[in-house]
């Protein structure tokens, strides 16, 4: 089945822009990115769009379709009404470069602020041994394709540009959680308490767990329930639970 769809695509750059309307033929089984490519091939050869794998694994084609942050390649046309125009804009939390392409360097800056995995002392490459049950929590977070849809939809930075300096965003707080749950991460031995930095440096307290990051994740990672809330609970152990704090100080609480 084919039909003519109306596409309204935001065209412009950091100096301004507007919506351009196109009519384009839709074939059965296509995704929005197919149609954007058809527009490039037939009507708008200078339309800028970032894409790569077309399989929902590279995280490049993030945009907003009918106001919702989505991957262009993972949004089937069959899920959209054929009678309504398809409105596409670039990610609205980041500076626009041109058309559907945004500057996501905010995310790379935040990634660099998080100290990476700290290897345990006395173990060389190839000597790491971990039990499956100890790593499966972190493995869920490793599914992240860094499409930055969660960063885009999070109202802490989307609606408050001034918070970008103090808030790492869900993707990178999940990274902190991943490392804090890592069975071989030796941050504590190196004098780094990831729970403290999550709250004091990466802005975990700004998260009000409204779950938009989880809603938009194309990898279905349960970011809020499995990363952000457990991290908040770990921070509560450290900062808001005097008995736990005292127990760890006087050695009653053994390391686990």
């Amino acid at each position: 089945m084919t039909y003519q769809a109306e596409f309204r695509v935001w065209r412009g750059d950091s100096t301004g822009g507007s919506f351009e309307s196109y009519r384009v033929e839709v074939h059965e089984g296509e995704v929005v990115l197919d149609l954007v490519h058809r527009l490039q091939a037939t009507q708008a050869p200078d339309l800028a769009v970032r894409w790569n794998c077309k399989a929902g694994k590279c995280g490049s084609c993030s945009a907003e379709i009918n106001g919702r942050p989505r991957l262009l390649c993972m949004t089937r046309m069959s899920t959209l009404s054929p009678d309504e125009p398809v409105v596409i804009t670039p990610l609205r939390a980041f500076p626009v470069l041109r058309d559907l392409v945004t500057d996501v360097s905010f995310n790379y800056a935040k990634a660099r602020e998080i100290p990476g995995f700290i290897p345990p002392a006395g173990l060389g490459p190839g000597e790491y041994r971990m039990q499956q049950e100890d790593v499966e929590r972190s493995q869920e977070f490793r599914k992240c394709i860094e499409c930055f849809l969660c960063q885009d939809t999070c109202h802490v930075v989307r609606d408050h540009e001034e918070n970008k300096s103090v808030f790492a965003g869900p993707r990178f707080l999940m990274r902190v959680a991943e490392l804090d749950m890592h069975p071989l991460d030796a941050a504590a031995e190196a004098g780094l308490d990831r729970r403290a930095t999550a709250q004091d440096v990466h802005g975990l307290g700004y998260c009000n767990i409204t779950k938009c990051c989880t809603e938009v994740c194309p990898e279905q990672i349960r970011i809020t329930d499995n990363a952000l809330i457990p991290l908040k609970e770990r921070v509560a152990d450290l900062k808001y639970h005097p008995l736990v704090w005292l127990g760890s100080r006087i050695g009653l609480r053994r390391k686990d």
């Binding site: 412009g12 822009g17 907003e64 106001g67 609205r92 989307r158």
Partner: peptide, 26 residues
Amino acid sequence: STETGPPTGTGVHSPGRAAVPQRQLR
């Protein structure tokens, strides 16, 4: 669909972001 200049507001209308007049498009 008229041309809009660079945004000067806050939130989704912060400077540098796409000049989409609507606050949301859902």
